[in-house]
Amino acid sequence: MFVLVNLKTYPCDSVAVAQAAAEVDETTDARIAVAPQAAHLEAVAETGVETWAQHVDPIEYGSNTGHTLAESVADAGAAGTLINHSEHRLTLDAIDGSVRAAERAGLETVVCANNPAQIGAAAALGPDAVAVEPPELIGSGTPVSQADPDIVSDAVEAAAAVDSDVTVLCGAGISTGDDVVAAGELGSKGVLLASGVAKADDPAAALADLVEPL
């Protein structure tokens, strides 16, 4: 099970969260990764935890002020990147461009989408994985696997119908080990979460709780 922690722009200590994640990762068969802000990528990668970018742009080297270049993300130590998070929506063409840019730089990709129909469209672009995240549940504390489990199972079916090599992650409202188990029972191969760890008083304890049932 893949546990990807998105730190967004929360006022947390990204290095401390990364160190906690690295420690917990050594105690479990689950795969744990952290996605900090771009400015913190290198510092987080230096902790030894698997590090992901929150976004890369569909660009190449050149005149692209203010954009995020996939090669720079990889050079900073990232192993993968989120694309099209609900807080950073892209057009379908731009999603495709970002996936291609990530592939060019050797980055693994997770494309986020709101619902099973969008999951199918995202899977057709050939990312490594897709993540279903109904926006209304993000940060709610109510996991999608509990609020509407059919969204997860339908997303798994939608991705498989397009490309069986694209795995599905479950996001939105994940905060406990039971949430992770429920996501797995619905066919998800991992979870994408943020506030449950990034806002926790003790990130290591929060992560340990997430992976303990696995």
Rank of each mutant, 00 (worst) to 15 (best):
P36Y: 06
V168N: 04
N114V: 06
A43W: 04
G126D: 13
G80I: 10
L214K: 06
G139R: 08
A22G: 12
I32E: 02
D201N: 13
A129L: 11
T167K: 08
G120Y: 06
A147E: 03
V168I: 08
P127K: 08
A183T: 05
A74D: 14
E50W: 11
V132M: 03
L207H: 11
K8H: 14
A123R: 02
A30D: 15
V73S: 07
V132R: 01
S195T: 15
T167P: 00
T109Q: 08
G177T: 07
D179Q: 07
V34W: 01
D96N: 14
D179C: 05
P58E: 14
D154M: 09
P116R: 01
P149S: 13
A94T: 06
A131T: 13
A76P: 00
A208T: 15
M1V: 15
A204P: 02
A45H: 09
P135D: 06
K189R: 12
E50F: 07
N6W: 02
Q37N: 07
E50L: 15
S164H: 05
A204I: 07
D148G: 04
V152T: 06
G120K: 03
S188N: 06
P116C: 03
P127R: 07
A159N: 09
A38D: 15
A30G: 13
A79Q: 15
E60V: 14
N6I: 02
E26P: 00
V56T: 14
A18R: 01
A123C: 12
N6R: 02
V191S: 01
V99P: 00
A160I: 07
E60D: 15
E23F: 03
D202A: 07
H55W: 03
V56H: 05
A122Q: 12
D201P: 01
D96T: 12
P149V: 09
A204R: 13
D128A: 13
G66F: 04
D163W: 03
D75G: 06
G62I: 08
A129W: 09
G97V: 05
A117M: 07
D57Q: 11
A105W: 00
D25S: 15
V24T: 14
A159R: 05
H40K: 10
A205R: 11
D179T: 00
A16H: 09
A155M: 05
L107Q: 04
V15C: 05
A172H: 01
G48F: 01
A74S: 14
A206M: 05
A105R: 02
T91H: 14
P11L: 04
G187C: 11
D163R: 01
A198T: 14
T47N: 12
E103A: 15
G97A: 12
V73F: 00
Q37R: 09
E71L: 09
G126S: 11
A159I: 07
A102E: 12
A121I: 12
P203T: 10
F2T: 14
A113L: 02
G106H: 06
A33L: 04
S145A: 15
A16P: 01
K199L: 15
N6K: 05
L69D: 15
R89C: 03
A20F: 03
H85R: 07
V144F: 02
A122T: 11
V99A: 11
L4P: 00
C112V: 13
G66L: 04
A101M: 05
T68M: 12
A121P: 03
S145N: 11
T81W: 01
